[in-house]
């Protein structure tokens, strides 16, 4: 972590909670440190968006959402987020599907409805200025509803935020991604910004 305030600047009750989380997870997860520090400035408001995007989707499974999150993180070359969310996608969907988004997904056995979303997410992540109506049409042709497309754009949005924060602040890599993944698959993201 590049800023001392993100290691030692939390309020007393937050420090107590962070102590127990660190004991349980073997490290302090960067997102919790950032979303909890002066939470009225950022974490209190970003956390509901994060939870809505990753656990509020009605048209995609949790595994598919984690797969999309892994893919956006990989496009942004964020190792921290790619590792953790790839593990969640792997636990939910199996190794073959999860690994497909780390390599050339076009050559993979992923369903066409997933591939069209990945193409869209790739462009929205890396070339957002070139996004146009035509980029949405392959998804609509696969009978993906407008609501379902909005859900994947939420995933792109929240990861384009947290990927940058992970790399800028230099989050410590998770020592045990499976433990992190099990925790997040069971509990979700609603408690990422600690009160105190």
């Amino acid at each position: 972590m590049r800023l001392k305030i993100l290691k030692r600047g939390h309020r007393l009750l937050q420090k107590v909670q962070i102590f127990f989380i660190s004991k349980m997870m073997g490290y302090t997860p960067g997102p919790i440190a950032v979303l909890s520090y002066r939470r009225n400035f950022f974490g209190k408001h970003y956390n509901p968006w994060l939870d809505h995007a990753l656990r509020g989707a009605k048209h995609w499974s949790v595994g598919e959402i984690e797969l999309f999150g892994t893919f956006v993180s990989k496009q942004n070359q964020c190792q921290y987020c790619t590792n953790d969310h790839h593990t969640m996608a792997k636990m939910s969907l199996g190794k073959e599907m999860a690994d497909a988004v780390l390599d050339d997904f076009e050559q993979s056995t992923l369903e066409d409805r997933i591939k069209v979303v990945l193409r869209f997410l790739q462009k929205l992540t890396l070339q957002p200025h070139l996004i146009e109506e035509a980029d949405f049409l392959p998804m609509r042709a696969q009978d993906i509803s407008k609501e379902a497309i909005e859900e994947v754009m939420h995933v792109c949005g929240v990861f384009c935020v947290i990927n940058r924060l992970a790399d800028a602040f230099d989050f410590t890599m998770s020592p045990d991604t499976e433990k992190v993944a099990r925790f997040l698959l069971k509990n979700g993201y609603a408690m990422s910004s600690l009160k105190g």
Partner: peptide, 20 residues
């Protein structure tokens, strides 16, 4: 840093939503 990262995520979402 927070402001820059937020702009990166929010603007992508808003641009996509405006077309959608």
């Amino acid at each position: 840093t927070i402001v820059g990262a937020t702009a990166a995520g929010v603007t992508r979402f808003e641009k996509g939503l405006s077309i959608l």
